[in-house]
Simulated scan of single mutants.
Amino acid sequence: MSKKLVGKLVEFKLPKFFVYGICTHSEGTQGEIVRMLKGVHHAQNKETGSTLCSGEHFTTIRFPLRYTHKEPEIQVVSDCNLSKADLIRPIFRSLGIAPAGEKPNGWWIVDGNDEKWVEALTIEMASYPDDGLHNLLAIQELYENDLFPESIELLSRGPLSFDPTKM
């Protein structure tokens, strides 16, 4: 079933609003990769699937869509034609672990099954989405706090090789 979800437009009904995403990859036990679309909707969006499919990118997440797509909060809305960019598997970043009250001393760059440790993100790496399996509340927090990959709040959690205020 998971491969059948690739190319589907998915509606996420969150406690305060609706958001939409397109499933671009199936990663087995690591969940599906979903390109989340910019914008929140305070009611179900009645636009055609093709209009929503061409929506602006907000962030990319991993989500256990194969296990949750039949839940009432998650609805497969329509098919989307994936672009060439959608077919490229995204590279993710993951913040290193640090003791309480301390800033981590680096990041993991996760490219498929390959992981590489870096002591600071470059400008290019700043656009990589955060790794990890999201749930509905985590998705809501991303939208409520405007937490896209290059947001100052997310970038300031770990070391950078550039000044994020000058991006």
Rank of each mutant, 00 (worst) to 15 (best):
K4A: 10
V6I: 08
K8A: 11
L9D: 01
F12A: 00
F12E: 05
F12S: 07
F12K: 07
K13D: 11
L14A: 04
P15E: 09
F17C: 13
F18Y: 14
V19Y: 07
V19M: 04
I22N: 02
I22H: 04
T24R: 01
H25V: 05
H25R: 12
E27R: 02
T29Y: 05
Q30L: 03
G31T: 03
G31R: 00
E32Y: 09
E32M: 01
V40T: 09
H42G: 01
H42Y: 14
N45R: 10
K46V: 12
K46G: 08
T48N: 13
T51P: 03
T51C: 10
L52T: 06
L52S: 08
S54N: 13
F58L: 12
T60K: 08
I61Q: 09
R62H: 11
F63A: 04
F63I: 00
P64K: 03
L65Y: 03
R66Q: 01
R66T: 02
H69T: 04
K70P: 01
K70Y: 07
E73N: 03
E73Y: 00
E73H: 11
I74N: 01
Q75N: 12
V76Q: 01
V76C: 00
S78Q: 03
D79I: 01
C80Y: 06
N81V: 05
K84D: 15
D86F: 09
L87T: 08
R89Y: 06
R89S: 15
P90T: 15
F92K: 04
R93P: 02
S94L: 08
L95W: 07
G96K: 14
I97S: 14
P99S: 06
P99V: 06
G101P: 00
E102Q: 14
G106L: 13
I109Q: 09
I109R: 12
I109W: 13
G112I: 05
N113E: 14
N113Y: 02
D114K: 13
E115N: 14
K116E: 15
K116V: 15
L121R: 06
T122P: 05
E124V: 15
S127M: 15
D130E: 15
G132S: 11
L136W: 02
I139Q: 01
L142Y: 08
Y143L: 11
Y143K: 06
E144F: 07
L147R: 10
P149C: 08
P149H: 10
P149E: 13
S151P: 08
S151A: 14
L154Q: 09
L154E: 09
S156P: 00
R157V: 03
G158M: 08
P159W: 03
P159T: 13
L160P: 07
L160A: 04
L160G: 06
F162W: 05
F162L: 04
F162V: 03
F162R: 05
F162H: 07
D163R: 02
P164W: 10
T165K: 12
M167E: 03
M167N: 09
